[in-house]
Design a protein around this nucleic acid. Structure first.
Length: 624
RNA sequence: GCCAGCAUAGCUCAAUUGGCAGAGCAGCCGUUUUGUAAGCGGCAGGUUGUCGGUUCAACUCCGUCUGCUGGCUCCA
């Protein structure tokens, strides 16, 4: 039987075969290991094992050596089909009952049951594989990780060994170089080197401190969005960081979103009363749940606040759509192991917006939102993305609202996505608790995917909050809400941007845009005048006043990835020009009057021009 | 939260089998006045993440907590 899935590509066959060879090597060294599964992945392969002994880095080397032997042994991969009964007997005979019997039971009746054998190793497997183990020669084991059986945290945690494999050693080598390059672009590393942000143990896990350089980038991005909002009819609002628990009972965040939130803040008087009663924590939680005790919540989303702004005034159909926007900071309780630099944090600011419109306006408004996301991604050169329509998971109880509303909202998302001109996939279980979403999933340099921009259609919150507008028939009607955030969150977006640009930001985003340096200290006053002129037109510039050689000043500016450098020496001052050295834009270089340089940089900034991101080059080694 | 690993000066890293904790860069002081990626010299910088244990002796061995890394689970 060919599996009903996609047939494997030659590369997948190599990786899948490497996984089997990994399984075989582990069994040779650790015969008591219980095998789970070993599939190929986008970037390599893995195999999951259940074993008392915890694998070490040394084990990885030994296992890899054993795999090389298997390559040399040039074993043939042979497929054998058998009946379910035979398969059960075969698995028992091989002593692999812990997981393989369960995996066997997953194969539906009527579908072929097959084993693949190479050398002494046999594995329940639909296939397919390469013919001989000698074809798998360019591989490397990379890491050991824990992984829950069947991906369910209630199950036992197995040990997963990750590896990668390619058709040729060259390709493998290139892949390993790419991994190294990716590490150099890591936003956590660059964030430290370029002083963009700081995470402080004393402040708390997952809480970003935007240092001055990073703050400039964020501010520029926010200015950019604010311009777009002004053009597209949004009104800016501000709301506080907390809200009454009742607000979230109405919205459904409490309890639907409870696990993702910081625990409630309980009023002081209520706390005192409860402690007098000797009420324990469990009882406190019960009373919070029931509403018997009042409190506040650190807001996990901005929508309830915006809804109350909308509800604070009567609306005519003539007012719609009402578009409210805010850079709203929200707080979510992420498990400690999920935190990661700026891309996964516990407090973050969404470039949030909520549209209140009539049902007839939904399609057009969603389109406008999608257009905004596209403008944002295009302006920043983030072109490697896919679109995902997130739907309900069937049979789940983590959603609020009627079936009818969900069906309408899902249809709206689907048809809007279809007009995008970009391929999109529909994925069940990816919806928000109040409605389906259209997500823009951007792929970063290492191939990891990040959900950034999002647009969500919501019939449910207007109902829960009993929102209305007066229609042309002079009767109350229920508006529809659209939630949208083109960046998603400022933290995650900037984190991705740091890696995308390798810290080498386009001039409009660069914390420092121009570094001025003089040949010797006598010329510093002249340099200061140049700085004044640059600042007068809003260009972020500084003067390197250290008594160093020019080479040292240039090196400093290069390491700080400053887009443009101006060198001032006797010749330049004499001729009334500046000597320009630019990181990416060679067209800018040469000697020119300061006014010309200013005009050029000014247009580069105001057009938000992208520069070709420079490849991450190693810093030249110091000559000894 | 779970599995595994890691934690030495502001940063990047050293320190033989347990035996006085060291270097480069950054910083400060001095010197140098410099032409497109590092001029030279000096000084200072540490209860080796935390708390506890083993030992004559702990950066080193054991345990604890905190944080980080790679994954799993979960998500903007």
């Amino acid at each position: 039987m060919q599996p009903s899935r996609q047939p494997m590509t030659p590369l997948q066959e190599i990786r899948h075969s490497a996984a089997h060879m990994l399984g075989a090597a582990v069994l040779r060294l650790f015969p008591q290991a219980q095998l789970d599964i070993g599939p190929p992945t986008d970037a390599g392969f893995y195999y999951d094992f259940d074993l008392e002994h915890a694998f070490t880095a040394d084990d990885l080397i030994k296992i890899e050596d054993e795999m090389r032997k298997i390559t040399k042994e040039n074993q043939r991969f042979e497929r054998k089909e058998m009946s379910r009964e035979e398969a059960v007997a075969f698995i028992k005979e091989r002593g692999q009952v812990a997981y393989k019997l369960g995996r066997l039971a997953d194969i539906p009746e009527g579908e072929a049951i097959s084993f693949y054998t190479n050398g002494e190793f046999s594995d329940l497997c639909a296939g397919t594989h390469v013919r001989y183990t000698a074809q798998v020669k360019a591989f490397k084991l990379l890491s050991i990780a824990g992984a829950f059986h069947r991906g369910d945290e209630k199950n036992k945690q197995l040990q997963r060994i990750y590896g990668t494999a390619f058709a040729t050693k060259d390709e493998l080598e290139q892949h390993l170089v790419r991994i190294e390059e990716a590490k150099k672009r890591d936003h956590r590393r660059l964030g430290k080197e370029l002083k963009l942000f700081h995470i402080d143990e004393q402040v708390g896990q997952g809480l970003i401190l935007w240092t001055p350089n990073g703050a400039v980038i964020r501010q520029e991005l926010q200015n950019f969005i604010a311009e777009q909002l002004f053009q597209t009819g949004y009104k800016q609002v501000f709301t506080p960081h907390i809200g009454n628990l009742d607000l979230y009972r109405t919205s459904g965040h409490f309890p639907y979103y409870k696990d993702a939130q910081f625990p409630p803040l309980v009023e002081r008087e209520a706390m005192e009363m409860l402690s007098k009663e000797g009420c324990g924590c469990g009882e406190l939680m019960n009373r919070l749940d029931s509403g018997a005790v009042q409190g506040f919540l650190l807001k996990p989303m901005n929508c309830p606040h915006h809804i109350r702004i909308f509800a604070s005034q009567p609306h005519s159909y003539r007012d719609l759509p009402v578009r409210l926007a805010e850079f709203g900071t929200v707080y979510r309780w992420e498990q400690s192991g999920e935190l990661n630099g700026m891309t996964r944090v516990r407090g973050f600011t969404q470039d949030d917006g909520h549209l209140f419109c009539t049902e007839d306006q939904v399609a057009q408004e969603v389109l406008g939102c999608l257009e905004l996301v596209k403008v944002v991604l295009r302006t920043l050169g983030l072109q490697d993305y896919r679109v995902r329509v997130g739907l309900r998971a069937p049979g789940s109880d983590k959603y609020t609202g009627s079936n009818e509303n969900w069906t309408k909202a899902e249809a709206a998302c689907r048809s809007a996505a279809a007009t995008l001109g970009v391929p999109f996939s529909e994925e069940q279980g990816e919806a928000a608790f109040y409605g389906p979403k259209i997500d823009f999933v951007v792929r970063d340099v290492i191939g990891r995917e990040w959900q950034l921009g999002t647009v969500q259609v919501d019939f449910n919150l207007p109902e829960r909050f009993e929102l209305e507008y007066i229609g042309s028939d002079n009767k109350p009607h229920r508006p529809v809400m659209i939630h949208r955030a083109p960046f998603g969150s400022m933290e995650r977006f900037v984190g991705i941007l740091i890696e995308h640009f390798a810290g080498d930001f386009p001039t409009w985003l660069a914390p420092e845009q121009v570094r001025v340096m003089t040949l010797n200290d006598d010329m510093i006053p002249h340099g200061q005048k140049v700085i004044e002129q640059l600042k007068a037109v809003g260009i972020r510039a500084s003067l390197d006043e250290v008594s160093d050689k020019l080479g040292a000043k240039i090196r400093r500016a290069e390491l700080e990835k400053i887009p443009h450098m101006l060198v001032l020496g006797a010749k330049e001052i004499e001729a009334g020009v500046v000597s320009v050295r630019s990181r990416a834009d060679k067209g800018m270089e040469g000697n020119m009057p300061l006014a010309d340089f200013i005009a050029k940089v000014h247009s580069e900034i105001s057009e938000r021009r992208l520069r070709v991101p420079a490849p991450v080059a190693p810093v030249p080694e110091k000559k000894v």
